[in-house]
Design a protein around this nucleic acid. Structure first.
Length: 552
RNA sequence: UGGGUUAUGGUGUAAUGGUAGCACAACAGAUUUUGAUUCUGUUUGUCUAGGUUCGAAUCCUAGUAACCCAACCA
């Protein structure tokens, strides 16, 4: 019995178009501008566009919207491709808007010939002034009524490099009184004497977004061109160009972009974080970029699950970061190997355990039997977490305390007989005794304890650096009001533990390997690791109802 | 009376005139060699005011609120 999942509004449109025979199959595209790294918001669009084609048996192109040579770079192209593949999607064709520069130029000429475009010599200030405001109509430019011949020649001279940047632009001739600002004779070509990452110095005029995007869609015969809500007003222009140019009628549909708590999503702000050193780079694990999330230890499946759960609609949304973390834990819980690591060590000595003896304890690698088992050395001196002991135990405390019994995971039940303090009054060692008849897997003592804690044998422990990441911002909506989003940066977003004690089996961890450090959270080996020094990033903590109950 | 888009629990998202459902979060309990996982249960909602109808989240009217549009960015 499969519950029928309801369709989102775009799936409804697609099904209608398929059922009516308007299209035999669908063709979507993902159109990033290569001027930054992809972030979690993009993954919503990626899952939507690629997901639609997979679900309905169509195709999805990857098309780089590279019409602004000033901000675009090959580095970004490469990272975008890597991130899409990592998310689990493969595109049908890889295209660039710059592939169409010739065609786009001829489209512009066609518009001029039809009397629907003109060259304007006004400065950008003059153009802005004549544009009017949303509530007042604009006024015609003095250059609006040049002849076709003059426009044709001027445009060709623009292309030939005869003019300086800003000296002339090509504008569509539509309606300066339109209530839609975008229809008030929008600029469609501007002069930029700049090097383009693909076409080099071939061009010195570049089409604007509105004169590249829809036409590219049309050239590729995209059936459903899906973009975010801020482009709603562009749709009228999008359709106008298709009509006047008499080209394939791609249709644009808009959905609401992803907003998430404790996160900024604009490329401008992310670039600022990188350039001003608030993070170490685009792939810093605190960044909401795909590469940052990957480095932090996220799985592609968890991100896809998240995109599936948040849905697709047209209303503004503000998704709880907790939902992303839920999807992550859901996936990692099934797949991550369990290991024992002590982050904040306290020595524990088992007085009745023989000196120098090592016992190998059997441990399951995870809840899934397919993950197998491993052996862990156990000996007289162990490291445990400082916060697993309380001299004066709180109510409902069931970890270690004077006289208390706990199970050492995969090993014995122990009793705390006493402890040592240094001159400053800090507890520096616990003295315990173990119950030999309670060995894990062979315990017929009938003794039960409420607490189980993790440990690492001091004689066998290796060390590693552990980076504990917390959210980058300490307010829910750092982009909220007038103040600078940077004032909301969490100063404690990274805490580094230089030498945590790890169990020996972890020594072979490879970059991007994911683990659950028992009772501590999920961790992932970082690319900064060297043969001499392993480094782990905390991906996400485990849910901790005890910490919550005690008020953190 | 610039134009456009959107309003369903704390957060998302369904219900397409006929029992307001699901997920996350929150809360309570059971199980547990991870205070994890798992399982059970509980709380919380149709923007407002009118109208149509046997019956309205859904249709009509009038409001209200939020977001987008005045880059030679995309």
């Amino acid at each position: 019995m499969s519950e029928e999942k309801s369709l989102n509004f775009i799936e409804e449109i697609v099904e209608t178009d398929l059922a009516s025979g308007k299209y035999q199959s669908i063709h979507t595209r993902f159109p990033p501008e290569p001027n930054g790294y992809l972030h979690i918001g993009h993954s919503k669009s990626i899952c939507l566009n690629f997901g639609l084609a997979i679900k309905y048996g169509g195709k999805t192109n990857l098309r780089f919207d590279d019409t602004n040579p000033i901000t675009e770079e090959t580095e970004y192209v490469d990272s975008i491709k890597e991130d899409i593949r990592w998310l689990g999607f493969e595109w049908h064709n890889e295209y660039y808007a710059s592939d169409y520069f010739d065609q786009l130029y001829h489209f512009a000429v066609k518009l001029i010939q039809k009397g629907l475009a003109y060259v304007d010599d006004s400065t950008s200030e003059e153009i802005a002034l004549l544009k009017g405001t949303p509530s007042e109509p604009g006024k015609d430019s003095p250059f609006r009524n040049r002849t076709r011949e003059e426009n044709l020649q001027l445009f060709e001279e623009m292309k030939a490099g005869k003019y300086k940047e800003g000296e002339k632009v090509l504008r569509a001739k539509i309606n300066m009184a339109s209530p839609n600002m975008l229809m008030r004779d929008p600029l469609i070509y501007r002069i930029k004497h700049a090097h383009h990452h693909r076409t080099g110095n071939t061009w010195c005029i570049y089409p604007m977004y509105d004169f590249a995007h829809g036409q590219s869609d049309s050239i590729e015969k995209i059936t459903h061109s899906i973009c975010t809500l801020e482009f709603v007003a562009h749709r009228e222009l999008y359709d106008w160009f298709i009509e006047k140019l008499e080209i394939f009628p791609s249709r644009q549909y808009e959905f609401a972009r992803l907003n998430m708590t404790y996160t900024v999503m604009s490329k401008r702000k992310l670039l600022k974080l990188v350039n001003e050193g608030f993070v170490t780079g685009w792939d810093d694990p605190r960044m909401p970029t795909i590469s940052g999330l990957r480095r932090k230890g996220f799985t592609p499946a968890s991100i896809r699950m998240f995109c599936d759960k948040i849905g697709v609609a047209k209303r503004e949304n503000f998704i709880d970061l907790g939902l992303l973390e839920f999807c992550l834990r859901e996936d990692l819980n099934m797949t991550a190997k369990r290991v024992m690591v002590v982050l904040d060590p306290l020595k524990l000595v088992i007085s009745n355990f023989p000196d120098g003896k090592t016992e190998m304890m059997l441990a399951e690698n995870g809840p899934d039997p397919a993950l197998g088992t491993r052996e862990i050395p156990f000996s007289k001196e162990l490291w445990i977490e400082k916060d697993d002991f309380m001299e004066l135990p709180a109510k409902k405390w069931f970890r270690l305390a004077p006289g208390a019994l706990v199970r050492l995971k995969n090993a014995y039940i122990i009793r705390c007989d006493g402890f040592l303090k240094n001159d400053a009054g800090d507890i520096i060692e616990l003295q315990c005794s173990y119950l030999p008849e309670t060995r894990s897997g062979a315990d017929e003592s009938g003794i039960t304890v409420k607490g189980t804690i993790h440990w690492v044998s001091a004689a066998h422990a290796k060390t590693a650096e552990v980076r504990l990441y917390d959210r980058l911002f300490n307010t829910e909506n750092p982009s909220a009001e007038d103040d600078d989003f940077r004032t909301h940066i969490n100063p404690d977003s990274l805490q580094i533990i230089n030498s945590a004690f790890i169990e020996p089996s972890l020594e072979t961890a490879k970059i991007e390997d994911r683990y659950q450090f028992l009772r501590k959270g999920y961790f992932c080996a970082d690319k900064d690791s060297t043969p001499e020094k392993l480094i782990f990033n905390r991906t996400v903590t485990l849910k901790d109802t005890w910490a919550k109950a005690t008020g953190k």
